[in-house]
Each structure stands twice: as C-alpha cells, then as structure tokens.
Design a protein around this nucleic acid. Structure first.
Lengths: 189, 189
DNA sequence: TTGGATGTGTTGGATATCCAACACATTTCA
DNA sequence: TGAAATGTGTTGGATATCCAACACATCCAA
C-alpha cells in the first residue's frame, strides 16, 4: 500500500505541505492559494516544494487522492469480500468525499476530481477481485475493475445531481444484487 | 531574544524533540525515558538528537529553560519596569513552574531545576535593570541581578516548603517594598 | 563467569532541505 | 504604455538529517 521504507524526512515534509494546503483550502479558494502561501504556512523552502510536487495541480491531485484513500480504507478495512456491505461502504465513502468537496471551493476541477475518484476505485476493486478470484484471467479482472469504477462513480454523480438528499446506502442498495450477480439476476430465463 | 535567522530545519527538529520529550514525560518517569524513545516518538534519527543535544540531561535543561522562559515572558511582557506588578508576575511564573514540576516526575533533579530557574531569573532581572538604570556600573547591575535571582528563587523554595498553599502573590507582596526601595524601607534612621 | 540484549555516544558517506540567485510570465497601477 | 511588483519554476553550493556501522558500558539470565 504505502511505500514500506521511506526516508522520514520525505514523509515529514509531504505531510507538512499537504496539511498546510488543506488548512489554507478552508480559508481561501483554490485559485487564490499561491505556492508561497503553502510553503510559508508549512515552514519549508519553496525549492523543497518543487522537489516533491510538479506544481500546485499536482499537489491538489495528491491531496485529494490521499484524503479519498483514507476515507476508503477507514470504512472498508473490515470487508475482505465484495459483498453488499463492501459496496455500501465504498459508495458512502465516495459520497462523503463529494459532499466535503462541494463545500470546499474546488469548482472548475470536477473532471480532475472525477478522474481521481475513478483511479482510486479502480485500484481497490482490482485488489478485491484478485483476492476473491484465485488467479484467473488477469486482463478480464482489470477491465472489470475499470467498468465497476466508472459505474460507481457515475452513480455518485447521479446522486449529486439529485441534490445529495437521498441517503447514499438507500440510493445504491437496490442495484447491488445486479452488481454482485450480474445482469442475469432476476432474469426470466 | 531568540536567535533571529535560524535554519528552519533546526527549529523544526528541536521542537519535535522537545515536544516528544514533554509528551513522554507525562507518561513515564524521567529515569525511564531513553533517547531511543524520544527519537522514535519524534520520528527523527538518533544521530540527529546528538547533533542538537549533548545527552538527555542537556535536553532536560533546555526543555525546562524553554518552558520557564515561555511562562515568564507570557506573564511579564506587559511590564517594562521592576515595579510591584513585575515582581508579582515573576514570582507567580516561578511558583507555577515549581507546581507543574512537582506533579511531573523530576525528583532527584532539584538542584538542576534550581539552577535553571536562577539562570533565567538572572537574565531577566539584568535586562530590566539595564533598561531602567541608564548605563551605570555594569558590574554592579550584574551582581544585583544575581542576588535578586537567588533571593526570589529562595522565596519560591520556602513557599514550596510551606506546602504550596499560600497564594503566591500574597506570599511575596509584603516583601516587595524592601526589594524595590532596599533595606532602608521603613528604617527608623 | 559468560554471552546476549539493550542503551549510549561517534563516525562517514548519502540524501533531503535550505538559501540566494536567476529567467520568465502575469498582474497592478501610475 | 511601461515599469514595478508579484508569482512560477530552476539551479548550484551549503548544511541538516538520515542510515548503517562501530566501540563501549550496563544489565540480566543461563
């Protein structure tokens, strides 16, 4: 998951930068945050910032990935199989993430955020599929993970478009049998 | 006061080490705290510890000095003259410090602690005397600062020996005229 | 007694971070 | 318009931190 033996200086500095960015995000809009602001808040040199991140968009991506990953693993570590509970807790994590971002001001980056969500979902789905499918066609599992990640992300977009009012578990629950048993579930054939 | 332009790495690392030591002190006795404990808690390398401190006693001294200095400056920054208010707030800072240490487990280091208190007092008294005595006999001011520091420290020891029950300002107030106006205060001559 | 386990303090080479300086773009404002 | 101010991204040399290894001391159980 996380790199095993990292230089503690790197962990420390990345955390300082990311935490400062999150802190600043709660006070300013993203477009008003400069790299100088971040490095001043973090008490690190501006050159050091560029040692770790390409630019401020790279930082944004990595912070969002990190936040989402923590959310996912938090709710999800108990499950070891893609059952109903797993799908529900994944979907709740995604909707929580979307909700928290709709307050923060990251408007104009919906496509970036969508990509990040799908990337993280793809990783987690692939991992779960590998675990429960004992070494079958690897390529098929990968593509299945892609399809699931787009699907679940799409569901969260739809949930958002409906005003984020329906409880997420309710929103997703009815469709889960189709996810788990496939489209044949309930088929007349 | 504090060095003006310090390398931020140094400030960061010292703070990490000191904070970790304070944190550990609230859980263990001083004698049970190893340097490995501190560096692990602080997530810094053991060699880095020795770059900043001679040994664990050196760290103890510097932490205590720092804590006391913060207390002193906190209560004291408003005063710019050695009047009654100044003496009272200094004495309160010292007794607070003694009280906080009597909970923590630094037994066996009373002499070290006493020395630290007197050193800090001496610095602060000397600074105040210089400010209000427009360039007179420098040596005399230094020695006066020494005498005041021993005196006030002694008062705090006595206050502690009496069970730390009398309110510190009450304990010190009656003697302040003698400190400010000298032994001639109230003299019959 | 001995030998392993644990803690202290030191060292040399590798690496991350700092700093000052630079070139370039964008904004501000006179 | 143009010039000052502000922000971005890069560089080279200096310095703090990391890491693995070492020598030494202390403690404790076989």
């Amino acid at each position: 998951m996380t790199e095993t033996k990292m230089d503690p200086r790197i962990l420390r500095t990345r955390k300082l930068i990311m935490d400062s960015f999150i802190e600043l995000s709660s006070k300013k809009e993203f477009k008003d945050i400069t790299i100088k602001d971040i490095t001043t808040e973090a008490m690190i040199n501006r050159a050091t910032f560029y040692y770790h991140f390409e630019d401020i968009y790279d930082l944004l991506e990595k912070v969002l990935s990190e936040v989402l990953l923590v959310n996912l693993n938090c709710d999800f570590y108990k499950c070891d199989h893609l059952n109903e509970e797993a799908f529900v807790s994944i979907f709740i994590a995604i909707t929580n993430f979307q909700k928290s971002l709709s307050n923060r001001c990251h408007r104009g980056y919906e496509d970036t955020i969508g990509r990040i969500i799908r990337e993280q979902l793809e990783v987690i789905f692939y991992k779960m599929l590998l675990k429960q499918n004992k070494m079958e066609d690897d390529e098929a599992l990968k593509i299945t993970a892609v399809i699931l990640s787009w699907g679940i992300y799409g569901a969260s977009v739809e949930w958002k478009r409906n005003g984020m009012k329906v409880p997420p578990e309710e929103f997703i629950k009815s469709t889960i049998p189709y996810l788990i048993s496939g489209t044949d579930f309930g088929s007349k054939i």
